[in-house]
């Protein structure tokens, strides 16, 4: 009895000391603040992924983040192709094709174009008189429809014979599997100054696909090529497989209960990435330079830019995990 009283006294004093220090307590993904409000952190949650989008049940292991912090990461393996929909179509077969036979194109100007036959026909108006991606006699679109053509066109120095082509590739051209494994921090580690997004992939989607940095549209257009995206904002190259360059709504699949935009995936720093607009069609006014902000339900999280902007987020708010293989 006397022992129990002593334990209770110690617990009471401890709680008074914590209270006097103005501290906050923390449980899994939930912080209790000084004013008794709670903040739920939008951290990586394997349960949010579609069935089949994680090839193995994520395990945890020690990892070193981009800023040198040693912490615990999830080891996450994705298939590298969407489990929720088919890939493509990309290039329309003829200048008479309608939008259902082709994908989309965006060049960072803010516009998103349907790649139908008319778009192909009018490329000279959009990009210059030396553009002609079709045979004027047959109306057939110049499409990189073989592995050699794909490899000749989907590279920085486009082979001359593949200029003035609509570029598309097939996953069957890849020598190895497209699955990729990432280490993503269980608890994000915020940076004092955000990290720039380099040339590497920046995250993964809930349907098992990589989020890529902005497509190099200037280089693509310089070779008079269109590296067609499918309607979901993704395309294939022979080195990285299928990857998204923008969000068009296909991946925004996890609805939120409070009218907030849907979750589409996670950045490599472990923070969630949500759609651009909430369910009422509105954008947020308080996004930071990375296109992120905090709220009481999710903590810090990002909102994707529009497809026409050719990007998802502006920078990393936290230290990033890494690609394993």
């Amino acid at each position: 009895m006397q022992k129990n009283s002593t334990i209770l006294l110690v617990l009471f004093i401890s709680s008074m000391v914590l209270s006097a220090c103005g501290g906050s307590s923390q449980t899994d993904n939930e912080t209790i603040n000084e004013d008794n409000t709670t903040t739920v952190q939008s951290t990586f949650n394997p349960d949010n992924f579609h069935v089949g989008a994680l090839l193995q049940t994520p395990t945890t292991e020690s990892c070193t983040l981009s800023g040198g912090t040693v912490t615990t990461c999830y080891r996450v393996t994705i298939p590298g192709e969407p489990v929720t929909n088919e890939i493509g179509p990309f290039c329309p077969p003829t200048i008479y094709s309608d939008a259902s036979e082709g994908g989309i194109w965006f060049d960072g100007s803010g516009e998103v174009y349907d790649i139908d036959g008319e778009f192909i026909l009018n490329l000279d108006t959009l990009y210059g008189s030396d553009w002609q991606l079709y045979d004027p006699d047959t109306g057939l679109v110049n499409v990189t429809d073989t592995q050699a053509a794909c490899e000749g066109a989907a590279r920085p120095n486009v082979a001359e014979e593949y200029q003035n082509h609509c570029v598309e590739c097939s996953l069957s051209y890849l020598e190895s599997a497209v699955e990729q494994t990432y280490l993503i921090p269980v608890e994000p580690v915020a940076l004092a100054n955000p990290n720039s997004i380099g040339g590497d992939n920046l995250g993964i989607t809930l349907n098992g696909v990589v989020l890529a940095p902005p497509a190099p549209v200037s280089a693509i257009l310089a070779a008079n090529t269109i590296a067609a995206f499918d309607d979901c904002g993704g395309h294939i190259n022979p080195f990285e497989g299928y990857h998204y360059h923008a969000s068009t709504g296909c991946t925004e699949t996890l609805l939120q209960s409070d009218n907030h935009a849907s979750l589409l995936g996670y950045a490599l720093d472990g923070y969630g990435i949500y759609g651009m607009r909430n369910l009422a069609g509105e954008e947020d006014y308080d996004l930071d330079e990375c296109r992120g902000h905090s709220d009481e339900s999710r903590g810090y999280h990002y909102h994707s830019a529009s497809a026409g902007e050719n990007m998802f987020i502006g920078c990393f708010h936290g230290e990033q995990g890494s690609l394993v293989h």
Binding site: G108, S196, I197, G198, G199, P213, P214, E282, E283, D284, Y285, L287, D288, E289, C290, R291, A305, S306, E309, M311, G314, C315
Partner: peptide
């Protein structure tokens, strides 16, 4: 914001 060798204007206000 920096994307590889390019600085790109990243929008953070509504259209």
């Amino acid at each position: 914001q920096q994307f590889k060798e390019h600085l790109i204007c990243v929008r953070n206000k509504p259209f």
